[in-house]
Design a binder for these strands. Structure first.
Lengths: 241, 241
DNA sequence: CGAGAAGGGTATGAAACCGCACAAAAGCTG
DNA sequence: CAGCTTTTGTGCGGTTTCATACCCTTCTCG
């Protein structure tokens, strides 16, 4: 009997596969824990595995002289090591665990063999890549024209989408890296959101209170990528829209 | 005899294909002109064709209430309709001709059939998708943390990479859309670059004078994506590095 | 060549952010 | 519970960018 039952899997990609496609990968899947702040790989590393996320969030981070910036994130709707799906061995960015959790790793050789062998699997995973591109594009867009508050709202929403609880473990320091801004700027923005009843903030923790208000603040910086995920992959929208 | 000789093609993707892959596409390729400011498609449109660019530049633009922003660009190193390579029918962004030129269109059905039929073709085109993702990520990164001047420098470099001449036809108005900023802000930034001898600016035109200085100003906002293109696709670096 | 349109330069006050520095909490540890 | 570390709150001056408006220059075309 198979080690892993497809029906008990949280990862949306693994769950959405045809049983045959899943069966071709299943023997090679191996459970891993995703520990807070751990790097699955650094920019420039050779990618040896892809990681299907079951729980938690992994951020794609660009690191330069000017500091670190998040360009995208993935949770149980996706996987880490997207470049490997496209036949590229070297990671262009670093992947850091932003919320601890767990996942399944799969060696790239198996991943590529399976994709070569199945059109349906390819279709599924490449549609996911498309959704990720839209997400990164939205990040570019948000960074270009939206206020710090709007970007914070967007970021909280995206993180919340990928968590099962309303409490997010986040320090201002960490948020400032994700948003590419000053730590004290985050403090001000957090206070504003809290003042408007969108979130409750305590030391090292942000609790989501009102998603509708957050969406209003985020404006067009939030939503497009999420719509694409849900059209393409049955990414579950939080039940308030 | 084939209508189009692979050897006479400027597009890097078409040129880099194996002769067999090229032959499978060649009968379906049709020449098109790319007229200034033309939209190849708008966000939400169904993608019916991909367009391999021979000459000119097409920008991917996100349009919202807050204005329009460029998220990425493609020239003779790439194609328009990337989503179609990933099996998605609907365009997430609008594609606008930023520098006039020409290209080859190919119906998506032929594109997908050819990709399904050839692993080597798939590998090539998906590696290109990867390079595009890195480019968009860099845009996100640049927008997050770099000054208007640095972003302008990056943008001029990227455009220059994709043109054969040093003279770029660009109005400040247009640049302000690309960079997501005010028109008068562009004027100031252009003056600064001109003052430092990096460019010469005349009405509706910017001439590149000193790429090295531009690179210095752009810093880490420029370079990573270009390195990936060149590793993966023999994207020619301008001969000054 | 003269009018109009398109593009570019400049000004001005307000707002958002930055960099930095330091004080106050909150939580942890011995 | 004393002392440390981590996290958060706050202040201040300076810079960048915004929003808006108006004028000037250059080009086009009748």
């Amino acid at each position: 009997m198979a080690q892993h039952q497809q029906s008990s899997i949280r990862n949306r990609l693994l769950a959405a596969m045809s049983p045959e496609d899943f069966a071709s990968l299943e023997p090679h899947l191996e459970r891993v824990k995703l520990e807070m702040r751990e790097f699955l790989h650094r920019a420039g590393d050779t990618i040896t595995h892809v990681t299907f996320i079951e729980e938690g969030i992994v951020s794609e981070v660009a690191e330069t002289d000017e500091g670190r910036f998040e360009v995208g994130m993935n949770g149980f709707e996706g996987l880490v090591g997207i470049s490997a799906l496209l036949g590229v061995e070297t990671a262009p960015h670093s992947s850091m665990v932003q919320a601890s959790g767990r996942g399944f790793v799969l060696p790239v050789e198996q991943m590529q063999a399976a994709m070569d062998g199945s059109r349906t699997l390819r279709m599924l995973l490449l549609r996911f890549v498309h959704a990720y591109i839209v997400q990164v594009s939205q990040t570019a867009h948000a960074n270009a024209g939206y206020s710090l508050e709007a970007r914070l709202a967007r970021w909280v929403l995206m993180t919340h989408d990928r968590m099962e609880v309303d409490e997010l473990s986040l320090t201002h320091e960490f948020l400032s890296i994700m948003l590419g801004t000053r730590r004290s700027g985050v403090t001000i923005a957090v206070q504003t959101l809290e003042g408007n009843g969108m979130i409750r903030a305590t030391r090292g923790r942000i609790t989501v209170l009102d998603r509708e208000k957050l969406k209003e603040l985020a404006g067009d910086a939030y939503g497009l990528a999420e719509k694409v995920y849900s059209n393409i992959l049955q990414f579950p929208q939080k039940g308030d829209a």
